[in-house]
């Protein structure tokens, strides 16, 4: 399985995402923002960082990068896409996910080891977890406060599209403690904390982040088996 990791100017956790993909057993393929060719990857990670310096708005410029045009098309066709932190912001700006990430309520950048409760496990990126599982993943952002209008929030809840919530403290003021969401098909997931920083005992607070990467491998294996493109179990 080949997992593409995009490098925008200002991407910072691209190397870490590629390392996590490798540890999970995939081949990591580096994708360049200016190159629309996805090089036949089976899934894509949009990594953390400050793409284009966060100028204008986080993710607002990155969504127009040539590589994103291909990714947006492929995602609509079922390609598994995981946006981490800045990648989550890019996915919202690209309208692949609803809502927006705004300045942390306390206005500070915050880096800490954060407990999450996993909810939706029927996505391409969370199927290795069990509903209600508590996992420990580093969070680090200045603009991670998830906001959406009430109707969108209600429908995210009703459709089971919240993949994880902050527990034992909300680090940034996100509405309804939302840490990550998925699209209707379950192939596109955005998450504010950084699973790629929790894949090795030596450097991370846990190994819990690895589940996101092994999930997509299972989704892809399953998809190959039953001829579907992606998306985990259908509702």
């Amino acid at each position: 399985m080949r997992i593409g990791v995009v490098t925008f100017p200002g991407s910072l956790d691209d190397g870490d995402a590629a390392r996590a993909a490798r540890i999970a057993g995939a081949e990591a393929v580096r994708l360049w923002h200016g190159d629309p060719d996805l090089h036949g990857v089976d899934a894509v990670v949009l990594p953390g960082g400050f793409s284009y310096g966060d100028y204008l708005r986080c993710g607002a410029i990155a969504r127009f990068a040539p590589v994103m045009e291909s990714i947006i098309d492929a995602a609509r066709g079922g390609l598994p896409v995981l946006g981490i932190c800045n990648g989550f912001q890019v996915l919202c700006e690209a309208h692949l996910l609803p809502g927006a990430l705004t300045r942390n309520q306390h206005l500070h950048f915050r880096n800490r080891d954060q407990w999450l409760k996993v909810e939706a496990t029927n996505t391409a990126w969370t199927n290795r977890f069990t509903p209600g599982q508590e996992i420990l993943i580093p969070v680090k952002n200045g603009e991670g406060c998830f906001v959406a209008d009430q109707r969108t929030l209600d429908s995210l809840e009703a459709e089971g599209r919240v993949i994880a919530r902050y527990i034992r403290g909300n680090p940034n003021g996100s509405q309804r403690d939302i840490a990550g969401i998925t699209n209707e098909a379950g192939n596109v997931v955005g998450i504010m904390p950084h699973p790629e920083h929790a894949v090795e005992a030596l450097t991370g607070p846990s190994l819990d982040g690895l589940g996101f990467f092994t999930s997509v491998l299972r989704a892809l294996a399953g998809a190959t088996a039953d001829g579907q493109l992606a998306g985990g179990q259908q509702r």
Binding site: D16, G48, R110, N111, R112, K140, H197, L202, T203
Partner: peptide, 23 residues
């Protein structure tokens, strides 16, 4: 906690430890 201590994925020990340790 206003500083990123994880990026690059090689931080073995960081504040408040006695030393920063990097792989």
């Amino acid at each position: 906690e206003q500083y990123d201590r994880y990026v690059l994925g090689n931080t073995v020990l960081a504040q408040p430890e006695d030393s920063g340790v990097l792989r």
